[in-house]
Write a protein that binds this DNA or RNA. Structure first.
Length: 401
RNA sequence: UCCUCAGUAGCUCAGUUGGUCAGAGCACCUGACUGUUAAUCAGGGGGUCCUAGGUUCAAGUCCUAGCUGGGGAGCCA
């Protein structure tokens, strides 16, 4: 019995009976006990008490053994399963878009380079440039920052598709909401407009909340008690209320009329800052908000231009606590308008020939959005740091385990 | 990347205006006790005060730089 310490691995055989002890309903009257693995209490870092999230992050290889991380990882699994179920039940096809991409036109941030070159001595051309023709893919390649462009190819062939895979950003972002490696869900639907897109986003999020409430009740109760007392109430609130849908221009008017000083100026040509989004969601509406029709100058090249010539059919879903959880748009299906926008923004037009072919050959209206999986798990668990809702977080200066 | 706070025992932390300041709780070890649930009681071991410089008679404490972590911001999902 001396060797049975916190962390040891046991096999117990016996009969399960109603317990007389407090705080538990059943207990095993053991007839046989096997000690599979001892656990030296002097060096085992986990104790039978609460640890800080920061400490547990340093021992990420062991932290699943705690109640909290067990609950978080089970909910993470349930959400992943529910996402596939949701789309499968609605006739969407799971499209596997590439992890390694030869395109640097997504414009979604800094990328990780992929190469087999010896960095100390890469092949050079006669003019001294790195000779990518000699590299594995005979061109510069990167880890994907988004599967969207390929997703559009799938949608314009199969109808409704979604992607669900790892995504990489080499941004030097040190925040509780960013990872260098994260998972993203990107549905893309042919013949859907922005309203259809918003309907899908709202229904999808509510389905996932409902699914988690129905299937992970014990874990949610635990997290509600130990991590975030408002968790279940917040989930049920989002589930029970319609998201506010509001054009960007109307949001600016609300912010300009608000009786408070902004650290960042509010103006029609400016993107909304965290303080503005937070005000709309947490103070003004007290409800999830979908903002639409942003100025084209602050949004990506592929978004459908409105007739006013100023705005695009973009939508951002803003959630309490985590800000932008979904970003999406109706896509520009007009070849000329799309090429013009690409040229204006100085993007490498010739690298996008395959993307433009969708508009060249039987183009169609279509829409889609991206949902950051870990931000979803964050919202669903009440955890406060994104590094604690993925098993092995990758962040600047940290790729341990 | 910027702002800000922090780094002292395995963990969570206290440490006054620079001068008995090497401390507590938990954990661990020993013993007692026990229908216990983060048990209880008694005793014990355990420290590069983040690192490197500097100021000073004297630095855990003040200064500089770096590293690590938290919070906020930017970038974004």
């Amino acid at each position: 019995m001396k060797d049975i310490t916190t962390g040891a691995s046991l096999g117990v055989t016996g009969t399960m009976e109603a317990s007389q002890g407090k705080g538990q309903s059943v207990e095993i009257l053991a007839s046989d006990l096997v000690l599979y693995g001892k656990c030296d209490p002097d060096t085992y870092p986990l104790q039978k008490k609460g640890h800080s999230m920061e400490f547990l992050r340093e021992i990420a290889h062991l932290r699943f053994r705690t109640n909290t991380f067990g609950a978080v990882m089970r909910i993470r699994h349930a959400l992943a399963f529910a996402i596939h179920k949701y789309y499968n039940d609605r006739g969407f096809f799971y499209l596997h878009t590439p992890i390694i991409t030869g395109s640097d036109a997504e414009g979604a941030g800094e990328m990780f380079h992929v190469t087999t070159f010896d960095l100390k001595n890469p092949p050079r051309t006669e003019s001294g440039e790195i000779d990518y023709d000699k590299d594995f893919f005979a061109k510069p390649t990167n880890l994907t920052v988004s599967g969207q462009l390929e997703g559009e190819l799938g949608a314009l062939s199969l109808g409704e598709i979604y992607t669900f895979g790892p995504t990489f950003r080499a941004e030097n972002s040190n925040t509780p909401r960013h990872l260098a490696e994260f998972w993203m869900i990107e549905p893309e639907m042919a013949f859907w407009d922005l309203n259809d897109n918003m309907d899908l986003a709202e229904d999808f999020l509510k389905y996932l909340i409902r699914y988690t409430l129905d299937n992970c009740r014990e874990d949610l109760d635990f997290l509600n008690k130990m991590i975030d007392n408002g968790l279940i109430e917040r989930l049920e609130f989002v589930l029970g209320n319609s998201f506010i849908r509001l054009p960007y221009t109307e949001a600016i008017k609300i912010l300009e009329a608000a009786d408070r000083k902004w650290e960042y100026q509010v103006g029609w040509w400016r993107d909304l800052q965290a303080e503005h989004e937070r005000y709309l969601v947490e103070v003004h509406f007290r409800c999830p908000v979908i903002l639409t029709d942003y100025p084209k100058t602050i949004k990506a090249f592929y978004m459908k231009q409105n007739d006013d010539g100023l705005t695009v059919r973009a939508m951002d879903v803003l959630f309490p606590g985590i800000g932008e959880i979904i970003g999406g748009s109706q896509r520009e299906e007009d070849l000329d308008k799309l090429t013009q926008r690409i040229t204006e923004l100085n993007l490498p037009l010739k690298d996008l020939w395959w993307y433009l072919d969708t508009r060249r050959f039987g183009t169609a209206p279509h829409s889609g959005f991206g949902l950051g999986f870990e931000r979803l798990v964050l919202f669903m668990t009440g955890m406060s740091n994104i590094r604690d809702v993925i098993p092995f977080p990758r962040t600047p200066r940290n790729a341990e385990f």
